[in-house]
């Protein structure tokens, strides 16, 4: 490959954090983590990034895997999309996450692509992010000086900008298992069924309380500079018994919560249309499963 860089492949997390410490984080240049490489190698080749050093995470087996205990799902940063598909229990309480993994890239990409890589790629079309946002996930960021936990909803600061301090590594993504009376769904609209970049991604999670909607989460991909929650639309649903009219109104509100662009895949206008149609559909489906 044309790009020129050093590569270190640490054996332990501490070594990795050490290697990353002092990195001029994010953006171009400096030292950057390398997980599955499915973004990084493509970006290197296209010369969108030019790190001087990569820190390969491939030997940090402790960062890979899904553990469910004490009502919480803890997912190592290096967990791949295929790991999600293979897990026996996730489909039960996080079908949205499994759904996105099914429509994520092709098999080889799913075998390599990690969840943390997806989040840290900063792409507004990152497919795992809407589902994780709707699940109220939190991410753990580590550096030699310690770790901190950041809600995913506070992680993204702007287009390709996030809360990571220079040299910070994401080690875990975790969320509470949704309550019994809850339902979550994800839908990816793209121009092709297999292996395509998302035009609109919608994740919805609802919890019911006494026949009403207790909590509502609507997260939208590829319709703003970052993956975004439609908080105003969520608020319209909370505490209400959902009717088709209310769901439609909330779906229209979701359109106001986003700020899509025109690109070669679709116009902003079409994206808005689909935010409305898909939000309405997914909320309706999630609600139907609860009632």
């Amino acid at each position: 490959m044309y790009a020129d860089f050093d590569l270190v492949i640490p054996e332990t997390l501490d070594e990795a954090l050490e290697a990353l410490a002092g990195a001029v984080g994010g953006g171009n240049g400096g030292t950057q983590p390398l997980a599955g490489g499915t973004n990084m190698i493509v970006d290197l080749r296209a010369r969108r990034v030019a790190p001087s050093r990569l820190v390969g995470l491939g030997r940090l087996d402790g960062l890979r895997g899904i553990r469910i205990a004490d009502g919480r799902v803890r997912m190592g940063a290096r967990t791949t999309m295929s790991d999600i598909l293979r897990h026996p229990d996730l489909a039960g309480h996080a079908p949205s996450l499994v759904d996105q993994a099914r429509v994520f890239g092709g098999q080889m990409v799913r075998n390599a692509a990690t969840v943390a890589g997806n989040i840290c790629s900063g792409s507004p079309a990152a497919d795992a992010v809407p589902a994780l946002l709707a699940l109220d996930a939190e991410v753990t960021l580590a550096s030699p000086s310690g770790t901190r936990v950041v809600p995913l909803s506070e992680f993204f600061l702007g287009y390709k900008r996030d809360a990571r301090a220079p040299g910070e590594l994401m080690t875990e993504i975790a969320w509470d298992i949704p309550p019994a009376h809850s339902s979550n769904r994800f839908y990816k609209l793209a121009l092709r069924k297999g292996d395509a970049i998302t035009v609109v991604g919608v994740a919805v999670a609802l919890a019911a309380e006494d026949g009403k909607c207790g909590t509502a989460r609507i997260a939208l991909g590829a319709v703003a500079p970052i993956v975004k929650r439609a908080t105003a639309a969520e608020a319209m649903l909370c505490g209400q018994a959902l009717t088709p009219e209310l769901i439609d109104a909330a779906a229209r509100q979701a359109v106001d919560d986003v700020d899509p662009i025109d690109d070669i895949r679709a116009s902003a206008e079409y994206r808005r249309h689909c935010v409305h149609a898909l939000t309405r559909r997914l909320v309706t489906q999630a609600w139907e499963r609860l009632t």
């Binding site: 092709g106 121009l191 092709r192 069924k193 297999g194 395509a196 970049i197 070669i264 895949r265």
Partner: peptide, 27 residues
């Protein structure tokens, strides 16, 4: 349904298989 080489003012906007979409097995 899905294939188009898009040229804007003559400039190719779809220079890869992630923009130029031929059917996959799923399609």
């Amino acid at each position: 349904l899905s294939e188009a080489m898009i040229y804007r003012d003559g400039e190719l906007m779809t220079p890869s298989f992630s923009e130029y979409l031929i059917p996959t097995a799923m399609d």
